[in-house]
Write a protein that binds this DNA or RNA. Structure first.
Length: 263
DNA sequence: ATAGGGTTACCT
DNA sequence: AGGTAACCCTAT
């Protein structure tokens, strides 16, 4: 008697993504136990989460369906003592080239490759609000949120600018574990960017349709709302830009600081 | 508990 | 038959 092969639902997939976003890839047990996701993922084991994430990552890796070209494989030189970190890839847009339903008339007409700064500001603020991290959000987390959840691709220049100061060991933190974790995340982020150039560029601002239609709608409304505020009040825009500059330098800002204008 | 390799079931 | 996704096993 074969096991009926329980296929993953959109809800479960969404929960997994948010779980990875919140706890990071690898903390499968933590994600599975999280009260926010456990109701949805109750029938899945931690191993199931790992396997599913592997499948998602593989699909998004480059084997989009066309172009059998494998990833060039950065391959760290043997002179490097540190083990090369595995490529942690984002399970980008699912089935973009796959059976696109023609009924979708909501093709975003704006093909602007470079969203205005105010849109970035809005996204950063939205990320902070959505993540609801009491201790503040790290730059990596914010970047991941924007990339995964909003399906936006950040150019590697951004990552480089953020990474450069960190690499320079100009980072003096009280929490070495946390900073190293952040640095590692950024390193992975920067390494993955150039490799995925073509694929990511194509999927630059593709919303991953199903599963999040209502959620995305909510987010869009939120973005628009905040965006309008930023547009009308120059001060907020300036604030967001300051926030971005700080983040670029690798600083960790707390949402409290932002709220109190103490940055 | 997690990562990785291997196996089985399903779809085209 | 070939590819993909869910499942299983094992070493660390």
């Amino acid at each position: 008697m074969g096991a009926p092969k329980q296929k993953w639902t959109s809800e479960e997939e969404e929960a997994l993504r948010r779980g990875v976003l919140k706890h990071g890839a690898g903390k499968w047990r933590t994600i599975q136990k999280d009260p926010e996701f456990s109701p949805v993922l109750s029938s899945r084991s931690n191993i199931d989460l790992k396997d599913k994430w592997r499948n998602l990552s593989f699909s998004a890796s480059g084997l989009g369906s066309r172009d059998k070209q494998r990833v060039p494989r950065p391959k760290a030189p043997s002179s490097s003592p540190s083990p090369s970190p595995q490529l942690l890839l984002l399970p980008a847009p699912n089935s973009v080239a796959d059976a696109a339903p023609p009924e979708d008339s909501e093709k975003s007409p704006h093909d602007d490759k470079t969203p205005s700064p105010k849109l970035y500001s809005a996204m950063i603020l939205e990320a902070l609000g959505e993540l609801k991290e009491p201790n503040g959000s790290e730059v990596t987390t914010i970047c991941n949120f924007i990339e995964i959840d909003k399906s936006y691709k950040l150019t590697d220049s951004y990552a480089k600018r953020a990474l450069a100061p960190m690499k320079d060991s100009s980072l003096k933190k009280k929490d070495p574990a946390k900073s190293s974790k952040a640095a590692k995340g950024l390193a992975l982020f920067a390494a993955a960017s150039p490799a995925l150039d073509a694929a990511e560029a194509a999927a630059m601002k593709v919303a991953d349709a199903e599963a999040k239609s209502h959620l995305a709608n909510e987010h869009m409304m939120e973005v628009e709302r905040i965006g309008k505020m930023a547009e009308e009040t120059e001060s907020l825009l300036a604030l967001a830009e300051e926030l971005y500059q700080r983040c670029s330098r690798g600083e960790v800002l707390t949402i409290l600081q932002v709220a109190k204008r103490e940055i």
